[in-house]
Design a protein around this nucleic acid. Structure first.
Length: 421
RNA sequence: GCGGGCGUCGCCAAGUGGUUAAGGCAGCGGCUUGUGGCGCCGCUAUUCGGGGGUUCGAAUCCCCUCGCUCGCCCCA
């Protein structure tokens, strides 16, 4: 292990991959602009306390997945494990909440110290949307529709939207007590992990993947039955709205999500093509969080999409590589210099240009020109230099007879005209 | 943090104790000193993730370690 390599779970994105990312990113920007969302960029590093208070001390994310350290001023700092807490902090700190409702989006890397597996890295990327100051079901529906439409317009299919209501804190507390006392009747059937969860975060037991637990839960008290009339009506109304929008969904009464701040609406968009980490988008309402972090009482709701997972779903062949239009073949130092000069002129006119600096035989350079998939080769050699000309050779789409032109270097307009023909 | 699988050239790989570690792709050079996509020829791992051990002898067996991968957990 003497070779230097990237940290575990932190991967390089090489040019061919970055091209795919940029397309998704550009698509996201456009999509969110049409929804009139504002982009927010917050620091990657925050006080540890923000996440401890915001996400919840008892959650796995805070308990054992954070990248935390003390800086030189002895402050406890943490690389953000998710986006919401930072956005809430920023929105409070910058006084945005006194300017009416806020509809924001963000995009960037997040960090969680976990064992990497399919669709899960230690540095991963999320796109997220957060609404502040909107409390109605219709705003829930708009927020969900933005995620749903985004994924569908990107061409993803076979997505499944699941929704649930977590009710209010009171609703949940009552349910939690009932669930725990019910489960305690079966404590001999429960493993150590579940017993631990009962103490720390009982709702999480609901989305356990263990078949025997799920079987048991089918008989257990249901969260829906503990919702207040108001909470229940809210949930029903959301369903009515989603139906009239034509957004298909299923109700999953066991969908609880891992972070403490959620209430009322919780939802996930999953794909069966992702392996064990099937969630591509997750979110929910968090009406108490802004106040909990020291801001004015403000209803809020948001979601986040995992970009790595999204890219897995899009597949490799959905993207076409970008090729240079012009490949400059040359020989000798003077010709190289002339090539660079020409390349700058062409680039200023929006051409994609690559120069061959190998100095190898023209036959070799032409092979590379073809492999680069350029539409044109420009040849600059001794003869061309002497005549102050350049030679344009059409490499792709030969149809008309002259596929080769000699053009005066000074006649830039004609060069461009030929290259565009 | 726990479990399964795996680590041979930039990539894909053959090789499971015995003299020089196949092959393919890519790369570079040549056939063809100035003109391409094909073809042919040649070159590219003193070394098998790293360290230690067993053995006359190890990529091949054993131990440790690092990494990758799939799952648990968790989540996007």
């Amino acid at each position: 292990m003497t070779k230097l390599q990237s940290l575990r779970g932190m991967i390089d994105l090489l040019p061919s991959q970055v091209e795919r990312w940029q397309k998704v990113e550009a698509f996201a920007r456009d999509h969110f602009r049409r929804a009139n969302l504002g982009e927010i960029r917050t620091p990657l590093l925050e006080h540890t306390e923000l996440f401890a208070r915001g996400i919840g001390e008892a959650t796995e994310v805070v308990g054992k997945e954070m990248y935390s350290f003390f800086d030189r001023g002895n402050r406890s700092c943490t690389l953000r494990p998710e986006g919401t807490a930072s956005v809430v902090r920023s929105v409070i700190q910058n006084g945005l909440l006194s300017q009416g409702s806020q509809r924001l989006w963000y995009m960037g890397p997040m960090f969680r110290y976990e064992r990497p597996q399919a669709g899960r890295q230690r540095q991963f990327h999320q796109i997220g949307v957060e609404f502040f100051g909107l409390s109605s079901e219709i705003s829930d529906a708009e927020l969900i529709s933005i995620a749903w439409d985004f994924l569908n317009e990107l061409g993803l299919r076979d997505l499944k939207l699941e929704i649930n209501s977590l009710g209010t804190t009171d609703d949940r507390k009552k349910y939690q007590e009932s669930l725990v006392s019910w489960l305690e009747n079966f404590s001999e059937l429960l493993d150590e992990h579940v017993l631990e969860q009962i103490k720390k975060n009982p709702l999480r037991i609901l989305d356990s993947k263990k078949p025997n637990i799920q079987e048991l839960l089918n008989e257990a008290p249901k969260l829906v039955d503990f919702l207040s009339n108001q909470s229940r009506n809210r949930f029903l109304n959301l369903q009515v709205i989603l139906n009239s929008l034509g957004i298909p969904f299923t109700i999953n009464t066991k969908l609880v999500r891992g972070l403490d701040y959620y209430c009322h609406t919780a939802f996930e968009i999953t794909s069966s093509q992702l392996g064990a980490q099937a969630t591509v988008c997750g979110g929910g309402r968090y009406d108490g969080l802004v106040e909990q972090l020291g801001g004015p009482k403000t209803p809020a709701i948001g979601w986040a999409i995992g970009l790595e997972r999204l890219l897995i779903l899009l597949g490799e062949d959905a993207f076409e590589k970008q090729f240079p239009e012009v490949y400059i073949v040359n020989k000798g130092p003077k010709a190289e210099l002339e090539s660079l000069t020409l390349a700058r002129d062409l680039r200023a006119s929006n051409f994609f240009v690559e120069i061959d600096y190998s100095g190898s035989a023209f036959s070799k350079q032409f092979k590379r020109a073809n492999r680069s998939n350029a539409s044109w080769a420009v040849v600059i050699g001794d003869e061309e230099l002497k005549q102050e000309e350049i030679r344009l050779k059409r490499l792709k789409g030969k149809t008309k007879d002259p596929n080769e032109y000699l053009v005066k270097r000074s006649d830039f307009n004609q060069i461009i005209e030929r290259l565009r023909s």
